[in-house]
């Protein structure tokens, strides 16, 4: 499998009026195509910073980020970013919300539009196309948010704790949905979370970061059967073993 993203000794130092903060220090890791990886670490360790770098919202102080074999800043960054809250625009209906990225990116292609709308139908929101987000439940809204992220067919998905704003019941259901959608669309995804069980239930690989300045502390390759959904993974004996291991690592990281 080829690498889609590569961090090579990436460091980042934030400058503020109070002083400087070293957020990342010599961070190196690779993400393979169609892989689902989770980045987990102690709170405030700079997990979201990693995603902001990949999304091109900020620039590293030193080191290289290679995306599809080229320097990240030189590529067209076909990357989708899913945030903690759904951030659906309340004045737009679901159809106009999920096609927002096409508008922003000036993709006028009719087939791109049809594709986005077919995703809405495929993932069970078809009857809500003309509804405002306020008439959807939290879980449905987060699904709409994922479809919006997928609408422009990105090669890489960044998920920044996308379930943290949901209640625990909905959370399990939505993470199951999101996992299935990402798998069936065969996307590469990077999930940032502080929830160990969420990371174990969804990913192929887990990267544990140290506390600030963040470095890679440990990597775990998960060997669950591919047919298992996140919820069914939670019932496996390996699940709790791995949970213990990562929990202890996070305490020492």
């Amino acid at each position: 499998m080829d690498d889609i993203l590569k961090f090579k000794n990436v460091s980042l130092i934030y400058q503020t009026s109070v002083g400087e903060t070293e957020a990342l220090k010599n961070l190196s890791f690779t993400v393979k195509k169609s892989e689902f990886i989770s980045i987990i670490g102690p709170s405030g360790c700079g997990k979201t910073t990693v995603l902001s770098l990949i999304a091109g919202l900020i620039k590293q102080s030193s080191g290289e980020i290679i995306y599809k074999g080229k320097n990240l800043s030189e590529t067209d960054k076909n990357i989708g970013y899913m945030l903690q809250r759904d951030e659906l625009f309340p004045w737009r209906n679901i159809e106009r919300n999920v096609t927002l990225p096409l508008e922003i990116k000036k993709i006028k292609d009719k087939s791109a539009r049809e594709r986005a709308i077919s995703l809405v139908e495929k993932y069970g929101l078809g009857e809500f196309l003309k509804h405002r987000p306020s008439s959807l439940s939290g879980g449905m809204r987060q699904r709409a948010s994922l479809i919006r992220t997928l609408s422009f067919n990105p090669d890489l998905l960044l998920l920044d704790e996308p379930f943290s704003a949901l209640d625990s019941q909905t959370r399990l259901k939505v993470s199951d949905d999101v996992f299935k959608i990402i798998r069936s669309e065969n996307k590469t995804a990077i999930l940032v979370t502080h929830d160990i069980s969420e990371a174990i239930s969804m990913s192929d690989r887990i990267i544990v970061l140290t506390k600030r300045p963040a470095q890679v502390f440990k990597e775990h390759t998960l060997l669950f059967d591919a047919s298992l959904t996140p919820i069914s993974r939670r019932e496996r004996p390996e699940f709790s073993k791995l949970f213990d291991v990562i929990w202890k690592e996070l305490c020492n990281a």
């Binding site: 999304a55 091109g56 919202l57 960054k77 990357i79 970013y81 945030l83 903690q84 809250r85 951030e87 625009f89 004045w91 927002l100 990225p101 508008e103 922003i104 990116k105 960044l158």
Partner: peptide, 24 residues
């Protein structure tokens, strides 16, 4: 959060103004 979403989609400042700030 919505501004962050727009920026992650590569929206220009004019787009952020017209599609987000003014309607909201």
């Amino acid at each position: 959060g919505k501004i962050l979403l727009m920026r992650s989609l590569g929206a220009s400042k004019v787009q952020i103004l017209l599609k987000l700030v003014l309607p909201s």
